[in-house]
Structures are given as structure tokens and as C-alpha cells.
Design a protein around this nucleic acid. Structure first.
Lengths: 196, 196
DNA sequence: AGTGATCATTAACATAGGTTAATGATCACC
DNA sequence: GGTGATCATTAACCTATGTTAATGATCACT
């Protein structure tokens, strides 16, 4: 379940659903990844640090989040097994990361050095297609999130969250869900009481 | 300022700031674009229609927006000259567009057929790099927007809007700005009164 | 079983923002 | 210079959500 070879196969099949590339390119890409573990509550990257890796979740739960001037954590996204995460703003802009990424459970992931991927992009231009597809799908995710934040009230966002991350609300404290929804735990509790 | 050749040169220099590609590939890419005009208040694409083009603004102002179940327009983004727009969700998912895109001023743009770009992606794999970069930067924009929606109150979002789109608030009705900020025109008016 | 830690719920009150409607301001057009 | 259209402002009232604090519930550890 958690040894490296299975994680790599999980990654391979994930890539295959995203775009068609010949096996040689995919193998070269996969060879850049190594497996890691991270304890519950640890950060993969913190604000102010340069991003260096692209990652793929094989086990556990990750989140990306900000810390507000008041010291409150604001969760932007949850990452479950089978999904990619990266401090993309940092990687693309070559600036320190504005965002934290960390675990909400003992977790496992594969990571690849972004510079090494960029070298491979040059050697194997077709690989850019994978990068393009990943960025496009990531954009679509953000766009959907933006739509929910602008169009829906907190109660509807909560319902949308439960459909988008089924079962997740039973695995993590509710204040993390409130943070993702952009409300306080108190308000989430009221919303839950209301839905009964 | 607005004839085709200058629009194309504007697009060329925009591409050059995004990524390095050899001239042959860029010329092939540019040759896919044609110039168009759109009157103030017209839609480039409406919800429910399949997206077919990628566009580049050469003049005027575009917006992407949703219409809520109550019939209210919710503006997601403004596009000014020198920027790209596309019904990306529709193009990538091959589903009808969930979003409207239209003008807030008499406007001009270049558009290219997405299928033709995909053919060129296959013939010239390096071109995927441009697509990747565009999607990455678009993602960063959405991520910043998400951060503002989650972290800032409406007054701070208004200040951020003025920095991000300097001068724009003098060119369009304020209710469009309120829509972008996720508040009512009444609330925006209160915020403006407060800032004085 | 008892204790402390952590988190969810509830209540009481405060505030940001929504709703409706009236009032002003600006501008195009006759 | 009036008139209507469009939009911004203001006011009065309402609702969703934030804040603070108290109360419950659950679990881990002794």
C-alpha cells in the first residue's frame, strides 16, 4: 500500500488518465520521483521558503493554507491520495512561497525536483503536454472554488464541500472545514444544526 | 493601434515575455489568430455553448461572469489589453461553457481555433510549453483571487482591486466592481464613503 | 473512575453586508 | 433648458456571520 513501487504505479496510472505519452517519456518522468513520509501536523513547505518540488499524494491528507495577519490558518485546498500538489506560485515566479502545505494525517507522497523536471521538459518536449494538462486541470479546480466563494453562501459551500470531499469531514476536525469554507467553527456548527 | 498587424505584434511580444520558442513555432502559432471587434455589452460566449477559441485582448475591456439562479451577474475576472482569455473549462473538459465572457466597452481581440492549436501542439511539441506557462500564470491569478476572497473583507478587496486594475474603476459602472468584489453596489458605496 | 486536553455546541451580543426604497447626480437627447 | 434614463448615494431595517465565553462531549492517560 505504501511502499515506493506501488506509489509509482499509482502515479503512472494517474498520469495515463491525464494524457497519452510514450512509455519512455513516462518512465523518465517517473524516475525523478522519490517516496517520502510526513507525520500528521508537519509542514511540507512554509511561507517564505523557496519551492523546489512537485508532489503526488499516495497516502493520507495534505492541505495548503495561509496564515492571516491575526495568526489564523486559512485552508485553501485539501489534497487526497491520487492528486498532485506543489508550491506552484513559488516554482513559477521564483519567489518564496506565499503558502504553507502540510499534513492533517500521517501521510506519504512522491516528490520530484522541479529543476530536474525542467531539464526533462527540454529533453522531451512532449512532456510539456503533461505539464500543460496538469496546470489546466489545476486552473479548473481553482475556478470552481472561486465560483463557489462568489456565488454560494456558507451553507451551500458546506454542502458542496461534502460532495467534493466525501468522507473527509469525518477524518479531520471541523475547524479545518470551517477554515476551508471561510467561516468560523461557531458558524459551521450553526449551519450543521440548521441542516438537521 | 487596432489593425490586425499591430494586434499580432502585441500578441507576439506578449508571448515572448512568457517563454522562449523559436520564431518558426511562434509564427505558426500567430498565423492561427484572426482579429475581431465586439461592441460594448456583447457576449463572446454564453453559458451552455461549447468553447472553441483562445483569445487575446488588443483593445477595450472584457469580463468573465456567471449568472446566478436569481439572475444576478457575478463577475469573475476583467481582461484588459495584453491579456488572454478563453472558456478554458469548456475547452479542456469538452463540456458546454459554465461561464459567460463579454465586453464592457467596444473591444477588439484576436482569436484562434482551439482545435487548430491542438494540431499545432502535436506537430510542434515545444508549443505545449507556451500552453503550460499560460495555464500556470492563469492558475496563479486564480490562486491570488481565492486568497483575497478567503482572507480579506470587502473593503480590503476593494483596495486590492484598485491596485490590480488601476484606473479601471473610472471606466466602468461601479455595480460591475461590486459584482467582482462579491458585494452589492450599496455596500460598495458604503465602503467608498467610509474610505473618505 | 478521575483528570486534563481537545474540540463541538450553544448563547448573547456585535458587526458586515443584504434588501428595499427614496433621493441625488450625471448625461444624452429633444 | 427640460426630460428621461442610468447610476451612485443614503437611510432604515433585516440576516448571516463574527466574537467571546460558557457548557458538553469525547478521548487518552493515569
Amino acid at each position: 500500500m505504501s511502499d515506493k513501487s506501488n506509489g509509482i504505479e499509482m502515479l503512472r496510472s494517474s498520469i495515463n488518465t491525464i494524457c497519452h505519452l510514450n512509455d519512455q517519456i513516462i518512465d523518465a518522468f517517473l524516475s525523478l520521483f522519490t517516496a517520502h513520509k510526513l507525520q500528521n501536523g508537519s509542514d511540507f513547505i512554509r511561507e517564505g521558503v523557496m519551492g523546489k518540488h512537485i508532489c503526488f499524494v499516495t497516502e493520507g491528507i495534505f492541505r495548503s493554507y495561509y496564515i492571516s495577519p491575526k495568526g489564523e490558518e486559512k485552508i485553501k485546498h485539501f489534497f487526497l491520495p491520487g492528486t498532485f500538489f506543489a508550491p506552484l506560485t513559488s516554482l513559477v515566479t521564483n519567489q518564496p512561497s506565499p503558502v504553507y502545505i502540510g499534513t492533517l494525517k500521517d501521510s506519504e507522497y512522491l516528490s520530484a525536483d522541479y529543476n530536474a523536471i525542467e531539464v526533462l521538459y527540454t529533453e522531451q518536449p512532449e512532456l510539456n503536454k503533461l505539464g500543460r494538462k496538469l496546470a489546466e486541470w489545476a486552473w479548473i479546480g481553482k475556478e470552481r472554488r472561486e465560483t463557489q466563494l462568489i456565488m454560494l453562501d456558507a451553507s451551500s459551500r458546506y454542502k458542496a464541500f461534502r460532495e467534493e470531499f466525501p468522507g473527509l469531514e469525518r477524518q479531520i476536525p471541523q475547524y479545518h472545514i470551517a477554515s476551508y469554507l471561510g467561516i468560523t467553527p461557531v458558524q459551521l456548527s450553526r449551519i450543521r444544526a440548521n441542516l438537521k
